[in-house]
Structures are given as C-alpha cells and as structure tokens.
Amino acid sequence: MTDRQYDVVLFGASGFTGELVAEYLAANVSNIRWAIAGRSTSKLEAVRERIGQPDLPILVADSDDAAALTAMADQARVVISTVGPYARYGTTLLEVCAREGTHYCDLTGEAQWMAEVYERVDPIAKNSGARLVHCCGFDSLPSDLSVYFLQQAFKAQFGEYAQSITGRMGRYSGAVSGGTVASMMLVSEQIMKDEALRKRLMNPYALYPEAMEPGLDQPDQMGVAWDGNFESWTGPFIMAAINTKVVRRSNALAGLPYGSDFRYEESQLCKSRLSALTSSIAIGAVMGGALFRPTRALLKRFLPDPGEGPNAEARENGFFEFWAHGVSGADNQNNLRVKVTGKRDPGYGATSRMLAQAGLCLAQDDLSVGGGIWTPATAFPEQLITRLAQVDVNFEVVD
C-alpha cells in the first residue's frame, strides 16, 4: 500500500469522539499523511479549523454509500472509524476495507455485530491482506492487553500460563459515553425482536470461531460476590459483556496458548457489600429498562446522546484503574497481578488516544499477522502496549 495517498483517514471526524481523535493527531503526530472524512463537508471544515489544521484534506462519504467509501478506502493505508452504532452504520465500511486491502480499527463494543460479520468478512480480509481490529478503546484494550501482558509475565516467572484470570475494574472517574448508550439501546431493540440474537449474546463464547469448541466459562456476573484474591466485594461491570468475549476470542485466535479450558471473568471492585448491591440493582434496572420501548425512551431523556460528552476539564481530570489477577497450579499456588492505570476520562479522553495509537500501529509498525479480523491482543499487543505509554496508559506487574 505504498502508493496510498494517506497513511490514515479518520472517518467520523465531526462526531464527538472523532473530533477528539483528530485533535490528538493534530497536536501530537507530525510524521503521517492523514485526512478527515465524514458525510458533511461544512462540519469537517469546522473541525479542521477548531484543531488548527485549515489545510487538512477532507474526504466526503456517507456510511451507506459503498462507492464513496471505496474511493475513500482506496486512498488510505488505514481507516480509523468512530461512526457508531456500528451495527447500523459500520458494516459497509468494514466490507469495503476488507475487499480493498485497507487496514481498519474502530471503537465498537457491539458483540452482536461482530459475531454477525466475523465469519463472512474475515476470509475477504485474509485474501486482501487487510488487518481489521475492533474494540480499540476503553472496551476492550485494558482487558485484552492486560491478560496478554499478565500471561507473558506469568510464563516468564512460573514456566506456564495462568489457568484462570480475573479482571477487576477499580477506581475511575469519567462520564458515560453517548456512543456506548446508543449502541446499548440498539442492541436492546434488536434482541427484543430476535430470540436467536438474544441467545447468542448470552453465550460467553459468542465471539469464538465457529469451528472451535467452547471452554468452561459461564455468563458474566450479574449479582454480588466476594473476591478473596482482592479481599473485596464485587458487583457487575457493564463492559464485561464485551470484554470477556474479546479476551476469549484472543486466546482462540492465538491457537489456545492458555489452553482450551482457560477461564476469564470480570467484575467491578466495590467498597462494601452495600455498594456492590446498589451497583447491581442500578445496572440491572438500566439494562432491563433498555429492553422495553417506554422505559427505553425514558432512559434516553437522562443519558447522553451520540455527539454529547464531558467538557475538556472533566475529560482531562478523569482516570481509571483496571486489575488482572492470574492463578495456576493444583492449589492455585502460582499468583500474579497486573495493574493498568490510565489518565483522563476513560470513555473519551483516554479512549480517543488509545484509538489513535491503534491506528498508528496499523499504519507504521511491523506486525506479524496477516489479513483478517483480529483482536487487539492478537494484532499488535507488544507494539500497542508500548505506544499506550505515550498517552499515559501503563501496564505493570504488582505484588
């Protein structure tokens, strides 16, 4: 792809998160040829003025215009997409990039969409050499990469991989993403209409390759539980619904290095049993309310819309902690823990930078995988972990 005009094309740059990615690239990256893209010329012109890049090239394409998306993809080595919900707006672009041999990454956390496109689009990408990588934001980079990072350290220290890993969301400060809300609402609408889709999303191995036998993991935690390793009460973590499936797919795509019986689960660390119970009830109420049209409409009145988000001060002052604890051995005698820390609001300030670095990985780094649909931990784990340190997201082994 050395004859492509641009190293990176940012699709959806006039959206809230898209503009944050553009802002980051404009202020921090000088060694790439890049352009912004979307369906509105006037909005894209306004973005490039706000980020101080008045001469930045603009490409116009709508998410359902295959011809325009093909023309855009043919000019790019990598397309970074922030246009969601991806189940509604992302399929045509994914297919185009797979067909045209254009690398691609996005922010989706929509398991139902990924499960639908994997088996169909993956062979096309393998044939063209396009590397397509979903979930390159807060869901699911901390989870997927922390498991990879822990397993490499575990193998070096104990001579074997951990048999099971627990992911735990720790302290954080940040706002709910309007894009995440829109995706959740769309999933809720879809599963009420499609019983097969509902069953698929309840399957812990929904993102496993179809030809592989599932492992032993059960559905994600929905109630309150005590974690003896962390000596803490835990409640459900809303992002676990996608993160756990991505981690399991990573193990499968890598050839099951952690074993076919590898176990992984996630939850939220809570200060007390009461706070865990309160969190469980709140998450259950939101998820349950999203299933029915009247309560879904009511929720939308109080939750952010796509394109809405926290102001710059809130984004900059946010932070997050994520933990992964691995064990192995007949009596779990081998233990190791990894901590992931990130500055800035996880859903916006940190996510926009993580996505930008994933795109730069695809554009600039020497990767060992060929074409296909990959997870972050199978596409570029070492390279991206190194790059994320540049945006204040760090991985470390802790006692």
Score class of each variant (00 low, 15 high):
Y161E: 09
E110N: 06
V147R: 03
R168E: 03
A162N: 00
Y89E: 07
A125P: 06
L132C: 13
S140R: 10
V147Q: 07
Q112M: 03
R88V: 13
G178V: 05
V79A: 03
C105S: 09
A182W: 01
E119I: 04
G174C: 10
L141I: 15
S81P: 04
Q152M: 12
R168L: 13
S140Y: 12
S183A: 11
F138D: 13
M169L: 13
S143G: 09
R120F: 05
M114R: 13
R168I: 10
Y172W: 14
A111M: 11
E119T: 08
S146N: 09
D106P: 02
E100S: 15
S143C: 14
R120L: 12
H103F: 07
V117R: 06
V181R: 02
H103E: 07
G129H: 04
G179L: 02
Y104K: 07
A162T: 00
S146F: 04
W113A: 10
A153K: 14
G174M: 01
V117N: 05
G137N: 11
A115V: 02
Q157P: 03
R131M: 14
T102E: 07
G174E: 02
T82D: 10
S183G: 12
K155W: 11
V96P: 01
E100P: 01
R77P: 08
V79D: 02
I124K: 13
G101E: 06
V133T: 12
N127P: 01
A125F: 04
Y86E: 08
G109A: 14
S164Y: 10
N127M: 11
F154S: 00
G137P: 05
S173L: 14
V79E: 02
K126R: 15
I80R: 03
L141V: 14
A182G: 01
C136R: 03
V133Y: 12
L132R: 01
A111R: 03
T92D: 05
G159W: 06
R120D: 13
Y86F: 15
E100H: 13
S143F: 06
L141E: 03
K126G: 08
I80M: 10
R131G: 05
R131Y: 12
G159E: 05
E110A: 09
R168M: 14
L132F: 12
A175I: 05
L141P: 00
S143H: 04
A182D: 05
A156N: 15
S164G: 08
F158M: 07
G84R: 08
S128A: 13
G174D: 03
T166D: 12
P85S: 13
V83H: 08
Y89D: 08
V176W: 07
V147S: 08
Y104M: 07
G109Q: 10
C136E: 08
P142F: 03
G174I: 00
L94H: 10
T82Q: 09
T108M: 10
F149E: 04
A130S: 11
D139W: 08
C97Y: 04
C105K: 04
A87N: 06
Q152A: 11
A175G: 13
